[in-house]
Design a protein around this nucleic acid. Structure first.
Lengths: 189, 189
DNA sequence: ATCCCTTTTTGCCAAATGGCAAATGCTTTC
DNA sequence: GAAAGCATTTGCCATTTGGCAAAAAGGGAT
């Protein structure tokens, strides 16, 4: 819980009352490894903040292959595709790679917070925009590199993930096969 | 100008007064082919909306290669990386692939609009989030495909660009060499 | 039409990656 | 500790892509 407040405060100031409101609306949940947080086709009913563990966002392409879009690790908001008032039905899956702990808000409570706390939307706007530019930057850089460079990039940018995420997931994130990644790993050492 | 208003109205409603305010603050500019709209290291002083033409966003990697991050075509807002009140100095270049026409706002006027029109931030939030999810989706899909698939994907998603953008730029967007793209093109027909 | 300059296509060969299947390694369970 | 179940590594070979340089094709100006 504290982690979430701390995170928010990095993007804007809140007074005690406001923090108390947030705390009163939050609840904590856990996910076991391989549990879904989202499933394609099911509507998303909550907003979550990941305090412990790693999640993976993925989808299936037209060949039925599982493609990992990105990873979410500790201290990140899990943002649905669009705005809060729309009903959001993802086309992706979001599942736990490791056991996870989350702080979650119902859409209703989240909306209340947004309507009550002046500046909340502004804070969110900052978070969303930072978050998205990072993702785009990472993706774009990956694309112009060969497998080895992508992997080196990955371990540099996600040092905490390398040892917690199965090789096959990393490969599907990097856009190469599992075998290729395995060979690349061998050559690096 | 009308194009810009129309675009905004797709994301939220505005009354006549509000539209007039926007119009009164807007000015129109042109860019010639190869002109810069942004340059890495120079601060961005305006917000623009592209009404005609195509822009290209690119940067240089550590090998000095030019990497195209994405293209911006007609009817798109050109959003700086972060929020409006921060001074934004990009690390990328944004230049005109074709002659372009734009509607631009000074940061000052843009801020005024944001402070005057209730709901403006909300509209922007929608635009930003739609825009970003599209970009991310496109990038992610590219990465799991081979050159041919990426190119087919490209011509399907940007049909209007294929004939206006030089092959070398498309190649650098797709993350393959110009020669490879040329060969791929040949095999497709 | 000619020259100049840029873009695109090719050829050739080396390197990287994919596909598939078998082997190896690691964990968990009984 | 043996068996079963995954994850990872390897081998083999086909295919794709890269690197480099030359050739061909366009475009614009004179």
């Amino acid at each position: 819980m504290g982690k979430f407040i701390q995170y928010i405060l990095r993007f804007g100031n809140l007074n005690k009352q406001q923090i108390d409101l947030i705390k009163s609306r939050a609840s904590e949940t856990e996910l076991r490894k391989d549990d879904y947080y989202w499933e394609a086709g099911k509507t998303v009913k909550q907003i979550g903040f990941l305090t412990d563990g790693v999640l993976r966002v993925y989808y299936y392409n037209n060949k039925g292959e599982e493609i990992t879009r990105y990873f979410i690790d500790e201290n990140h908001l899990i943002l649905s595709g669009s705005t809060i008032d729309e009903i959001y039905t993802p086309s992706e899956y979001l599942s736990a790679i490791t056991d996870c702990k989350l702080v979650v808000f119902s859409k209703h409570d989240w909306k209340e917070i947004s309507e009550t706390i002046v500046g909340w939307d502004h804070i969110l706007q900052k978070i969303v925009s930072k978050y998205h530019s990072e993702k785009i930057a990472r993706r774009s850089e990956l694309i112009s590199q060969d497998g080895t460079e992508r992997y080196l990039d990955f371990i540099q940018k996600f040092p905490t993930l390398v040892n917690r995420v199965p090789l096959s997931f990393i490969a599907s994130y990097l856009g190469i096969t599992q075998s290729s990644l395995s060979r690349i790993r061998k050559n690096i050492r």
